[in-house]
Amino acid sequence: MSDMMDDMEGGEGVVKKFMFVNRKAPHGTVYALEGLEVVLISAAFDQDVSMVFTDDGVYELIKGMNTKGIEVKDFSKTYRALEGYDIEKLYVEKASMDARGLSEDDLIVDVTVLDSAEMASLMAEQDVVISF
């Protein structure tokens, strides 16, 4: 593990469209946290990265979490660091929010809300889709 790779910005190579699909609630399983870490690491490779939140995955972005009582890290704050990692394409499916009584105002970061058809075509145009 060296800092070297991080410095290889602007290197040659093909830029692919990567999509990370988040469908799990935070804390109950380790998927949400692991998925976020993979995204942060992927940022070092300068690819075209999108993050999608559907189904229970929308719960990952809820504002105002307080994890002291269950003694785990509050990684919801880390979603706000994504911008600094140049990961700015965050998409949330409207139907998933509606089914949970949630709206954009309940989320900790700015996102683009898509209807299911828009989400489907976004998925269809990716080179690589990785699901958590």
Binding site: I62, K63, M65, N66, G69, S76
Partner: peptide
């Protein structure tokens, strides 16, 4: 379980009639 509600940012949305316990 209250601590699980709080950890998920849902403590302000609990349904009436549901009792929170620690």
């Amino acid at each position: 379980l209250g601590p699980d509600m709080e950890a998920r940012g849902m403590a302000g949305r609990v349904l009436d009639g549901v009792k929170l316990v620690d």
